[in-house]
Design a binder for these strands. Structure first.
Lengths: 343, 343
DNA sequence: TACTACTGTGGGAGCGCTCCCAGCCGTGAT
DNA sequence: ATCACGGCTGGGAGCGCTCCCACAGTAGTA
């Protein structure tokens, strides 16, 4: 196969616009117009060009197009690598799936960019700035991250996943954390639970705050008292928080954990204390990850429409890219309570 | 000078090679040589150019480079979308992580390409062929998939994950399925189990066959008899196979499932039959996914070094790309038995 | 009839690089 | 002093497209 590779090295004889034009008996400009779907081409000419394209198996050269048109037809999905939480189920693959679905009928390419430490993060801004992408999808953005604003200043369309505050200035797609938490706790109340605790995520994360707010709202509706322990979305944190809650309120009969992973940690502690789930203590998580489905008993959990969020992010970004003036829309998608045996 | 800098940072005014050359008082060719690390540049000149690059914040234009040099500095990770198995834990995110790590110190970009049905698959060959990528990583390739051979013929370097047969002609990275299975079953034997069943994956998948071979080898070593039921890597398949095994051999005291998901299905059936794990029946899975860690009891499982496989795939591909003649190496990475409470 | 509008069309002028070929200089050998 | 031969260097010639201007042809208007 050495021969083939050699051929590849010198541009493999792939047809160019020029050759298509010659074949169709028209000029370069006309072929370009047909390729790009311009309406200012007569029907016969269009047909002739399309025939030539098909005969020669012509595919436009992206690099040439990018250079001439000053756009790349590519967007970047920027993933913070150290962020273990994002890489865990179900986020990453579902987001990618959704983005891919939205891009499937498009000419857009998806560039995956993993950013590690600060050094790479610095390079990234420069990298993205030099017009290598038409837009950027940012997931798992922290409140104090300068990157989104930097990109905005550079005029690069950005869509982020998850708002960072109530009035997010950037285009964003979020799930309804408040309502998801409220529904979960309301379900516990409806099940006759009266001492309902929560294990929160880190409260500098807006989504974690909203889940706490939802918990509080449901308790207020039922006239019940709040019982919260703070953790950090990890299993170990869930264990510690659960132990703390049991010490503070041995009579609790339900726990709403702001993530499945924390719920898993809580379950271990409940077991160690000889508490049956759901008989003695009901347990609900958040994320509806595979952990929830395979936990024993299967965990009731709040499902976020991650794949749809990915799709929506991509669609918003495409809209922002083609818009003449940025609109920065904020989309909030509904969550869904998936009831299983744990509650 | 903040204003001036802001202006420069704007997309329209990004510095070009030419401007760097003017600034450094040298010619375009010389700047190009410095940028590309050519040794044929004097020290003073190099320093002058590097200073100019730093001052202007110059970043090469990828499109222009790709057009002129006829290479894209990008590789594609092709993911078969319908393949639910691949998208499930732990594969996808770990592979991406590994690939990303290998590419981190490189100028290579990672293009993520999700392919759906046959129609898209057809487009894909054309797409990849038209010189948009320097190489392709193919995951989850079926034995009868024409794509890898197609790409090879087009002279595009390819690395696949998982061999399709004993003598895989393409460059590939695989894990040692045989040895992983053998170690798992040997561990059961060492634990005193005497009637050890297996639930296999689909046997047209080479990896699934190798796991069965490893199971057989361990049994042969111990002088025990084989007891196999075939399934398809799904939970439901695991349930059916387990039920079949219990009917055929009620006295079995251990099960080796060729995937965690199937082990999860098997566990449900074992429970339904009132069998305790591991007291009555030991259970071992394969993949060491999050399912294994969160199963009750936690599942002993064979860990594949997925992230390292991703890294190795990328490294092999980079080597193939820069090699003058393809070497098509086959790499097999070791697996590891992670012993938990289920065995 | 002469003029102004279109609609289609061809092709020049780049986009920002790499490649490569001359040409410059200094050095060592003759 | 002459020649040959390297190491460095400058810059022309593209890479394959898009953009845009000019212009032919046709049709509508006074």
């Amino acid at each position: 196969m050495t021969a083939a590779r050699t051929v590849r090295a010198r541009s493999a004889g792939r047809p160019t616009l020029e050759e298509v034009a010659a074949r169709a008996g028209v000029g370069r400009g006309t072929v370009s117009r047909v390729i790009n779907g311009s309406p200012r081409v007569s029907e016969e000419t269009r047909a002739a060009v399309e025939a030539a394209v098909a005969e020669l198996g012509y595919v436009p050269n992206r690099a040439a197009r990018a250079l001439a048109a000053n756009r790349t037809d590519a967007i970047a999905l920027v993933v913070p690598e150290p962020e273990a939480r994002f890489f865990a189920e179900p986020y990453f693959s579902d987001i990618v799936r959704g983005v891919g679905a939205a891009l499937a009928d498009t000419e857009m390419q998806l560039l995956l960019t993993l950013v590690g430490g600060d050094r790479e993060r610095r390079r990234l801004a420069q990298y993205l700035a030099s017009h290598r992408v038409d837009g950027v999808l940012l997931v798992s953005v922290h409140a104090d991250d300068p990157l989104p604003e930097l990109l905005e200043q550079l005029g690069i369309p950005v869509v982020i996943s998850g708002r960072r505050s109530e009035d997010e200035p950037l285009a964003s797609v979020d799930s309804d954390n408040f309502e998801g938490a409220r529904a979960a706790v309301a379900h516990l109340v409806a099940g006759g639970r009266r001492t309902i605790a929560t294990i929160t995520g880190p409260l500098d994360v807006y989504g974690a705050r909203r889940r706490l707010d939802g918990y509080r709202a449901a308790l207020a509706d039922a006239g019940l008292d709040e019982l919260a322990a703070h953790a950090d979305f990890t299993e170990e944190g869930g264990r510690r928080a659960m132990a703390e809650l049991l010490a503070r309120a041995p009579g609790l009969d339900a726990v709403f954990a702001a993530s499945d992973v924390m719920a898993s940690g809580a379950r271990q502690v409940l077991r160690d204390h000889g508490r049956r789930i759901p008989e003695d203590t009901a347990l609900i998580g958040f994320d509806d990850s595979s952990i929830a489905r395979h936990m024993d008993p299967p965990l009731t959990s709040v499902r976020q429409p991650i794949e749809e969020m990915g799709r929506a992010m991509a669609e918003l970004l495409l809209a922002e890219i083609s818009a003449t003036t940025p609109t920065r829309p904020s989309l909030v998608l509904p969550t869904e309570l998936v009831v299983r045996a744990s509650s």
